[in-house]
Design a protein around this nucleic acid. Structure first.
Ligand SMILES: NC(=O)c1ccc[n+]([C@@H]2O[C@H](COP(=O)([O-])OP(=O)(O)OC[C@H]3O[C@@H](n4cnc5c(N)ncnc54)[C@H](O)[C@@H]3O)[C@@H](O)[C@H]2O)c1
Ligand SMILES: NC(=O)c1ccc[n+]([C@@H]2O[C@H](COP(=O)([O-])OP(=O)(O)OC[C@H]3O[C@@H](n4cnc5c(N)ncnc54)[C@H](O)[C@@H]3O)[C@@H](O)[C@H]2O)c1
Lengths: 207, 207
DNA sequence: GTAGCTTTGTGAAACATTTCACAATGCTAG
DNA sequence: CTAGCATTGTGAAATGTTTCACAAAGCTAC
């Protein structure tokens, strides 16, 4: 398949969210323009994004909301659930694992690891915290698809190395540093200080 | 000033981080290639990014680390501190406000608002939680530059409207929805479910 | 002072993404 | 069945971003 831009994939996720909203309101059919209007983009962008994957609309009419929801689930790989391991049961980590929204969208936390003896053994969001020393033994049993890395930055790279060695191909990283991983592993880093700095730039240089 | 791409601004923030690391190690001078190597980009990219703002290096030698740190602080608007208001003292919100890293980078939480009577009056990260009903009265006194919005999604838009009305120009939003704001207000939305879906896409469609 | 080496700064080229614009299509009404 | 209308799907154009490649500059050694 032709290489799809990351910006396109992110918009598809957004469209899916809006479509589910429309579906909840009982709306049967939607035009590219109406979908675009909901998300701050343009109708041409919506149609182009979808056209990379096929032809889902009816000319003169628009898109069937349930059909497009289904198609986007297919495209984004959301027809299955994903098994997620959390590394670091700290403040951010526990907020994530206790959030109902992820399970609702098909991301199930199946394992939690920490180094702090005070946390090991306690349950968070229905999952028992394990010793990170057991990472290898436990994850080979658990078969996680995605790792969410929420440790202090000092240990993040070494934990990432262990995850890669275990065959993990997708990491969502919150530690404020650039993880080094092989090319076949996808890392998305959420760097909040960087977001604040981008806001500061816009305050300092208003257009 | 010529319009600068968002991707450029984000890389400048990264460069600054790496430079501070190098500075801490007592490194005096660095080439674009070495800086690029640290951050997974290319030397031409580094030089091009910097060239939008001026000429900071010495040919044949590279960049003075302290000088470039200073220049980037200037460019990104980090020579001053920013006053940040937090709206929503829940799990994510309290993790943010208790995190030392933000103050270290010049982002000071100066006000916290919540609706929950159990939270109002308690202190978080040294700041007392106020009733969100007092938002207008308190923020006009406090003069925040940036608002971090961490309420449930149902109320996020109405809180954002109040912030905009108070003259806030920068919002960091964690609620999983698209905020509608005037064009002169900058919003950065951190949507974690969307990040996970992008990872799912890559698992479903490996290249 | 000059030769040799390194590295910057930057137009130009290559590549990527978004926007435009319109033919093709299907629906509705009569 | 036909006319009129709305909307898709998509090449082509426009715009934006990254990479290339090289002249210009400065340092070091002699
Ligand atoms: N809290 C924030 O607002 C915030 C903002 C931006 C970035 N971050 C980053 O997110 C990460 C976590 O932040 P936090 O606030 O949740 O910190 P935290 O200190 O509350 O949690 C970190 C957790 O990681 C555990 N840990 C330490 N070493 C470990 C190891 N080797 N293996 C497994 N677990 C280990 C600790 O025991 C702790 O429970 C940090 O990298 C932080 O810089 C946090
Ligand atoms: N926790 C996560 O992992 C996670 C992940 C992704 C997104 N989010 C989003 O971040 C936001 C906060 O998440 P959380 O886990 O901290 O939720 P939370 O329920 O722990 O916190 C929300 C806080 O907002 C307060 N609040 C409610 N209405 C308010 C109002 N009108 N004004 C001010 N405060 C108000 C509540 O009292 C509560 O303290 C939500 O929008 C959530 O969807 C959370």
């Amino acid at each position: 398949m032709r290489k799809i831009a990351d910006s396109t994939v992110r918009r598809l996720s957004l469209y899916l969210r809006f479509l589910e909203e429309f579906e909840g309101q009982g709306i049967e059919t939607i035009s590219s323009g109406a979908l675009a209007g909901r998300g701050g983009t343009t109708s041409a962008q919506v149609r182009k994004d979808l056209s990379f994957f096929g032809s889902f609309g009816k000319r003169g009419l628009g898109y069937s909301v349930p059909e497009l929801v289904q198609a986007l689930h297919q495209i984004l790989g959301l027809t299955r659930h994903y098994r997620v391991a959390l590394i670091g049961a700290g403040k951010i980590g526990s907020a994530l694992v206790e959030n109902r929204g992820f399970r609702r969208r098909g991301f199930d936390f199946v394992a939690i690891f920490d180094r702090d003896p005070a946390k090991i053994g306690r349950a968070l969001g229905g999952v028992q915290v394990e010793d990170v020393a057991q990472l290898e033994a436990s994850l080979t049993r658990t078969h996680a698809d995605i790792a969410v890395l929420v440790t202090p930055p000092e240990v993040a790279q070494s934990v990432a190395d262990r995850l890669v060695h275990l065959g993990i191909k997708s990491i969502l990283n919150f530690a404020p540093l650039q993880l080094v991983v092989p090319a076949n592993v996808t890392v998305k880093t959420v760097n909040l200080a960087l977001e604040l700095e981008a806001l500061a730039y816009h305050l300092a240089n208003p257009n």
